[in-house]
């Protein structure tokens, strides 16, 4: 089997790091704010603490997000923000997905199948 992450001829590559549902939720959440703390991300994404922490670390290791650990009063406070690199990667991902979805809906129309799966080719 070939590498699923490799770019297909003529088609934009999809970033596998962002394509995972949990990380996509994190990236999208951070894309519409300047920064957000761990509790906000927990609530917005619906992930567990351990799961969210693991995904944040993966994104930070790739340079897509910047994590600041500080204190608010006597409690630790973790703030996350997208880096310019992360924002650009997310934009590329959105463009690639829009391209794929456009292709998919185009081919579905050609073969007479709507997005709901109904066959429209019959007279």
């Amino acid at each position: 089997m070939g590498n699923p992450d490799a770019p297909t001829d003529g088609l934009p590559p999809v970033d596998p790091l962002i394509h995972a549902p949990a990380r996509l939720a994190i990236m999208a959440t951070l894309a519409v704010v300047d920064e957000a703390d761990f509790r906000y991300l927990l609530r917005a994404t619906g992930l567990t603490k351990g799961n969210l922490s693991a995904h944040l670390n993966k994104l930070a290791a790739a340079g897509y997000i910047h994590i600041t650990k500080t204190f608010r009063g006597k409690y630790p406070w973790t703030l996350c923000r997208l880096t310019p690199q992360g924002r650009a990667a997310f934009e590329r991902y959105r463009r690639a997905m829009a391209h794929y979805l456009g292709l998919a809906s185009g081919s579905a129309l050609q073969s007479g199948v709507t997005s709901a799966g109904e066959d429209t080719s019959a007279p």
Partner: peptide, 21 residues
């Protein structure tokens, strides 16, 4: 995952943010 992404991820995130505000 409770906050499952549906449709355009950015619109989903903006909706979540607006409800939060």
């Amino acid at each position: 995952m409770a906050g499952v992404v549906s449709g355009d991820p950015l619109r989903w995130a903006e909706g979540t943010l607006r409800r939060y505000w």
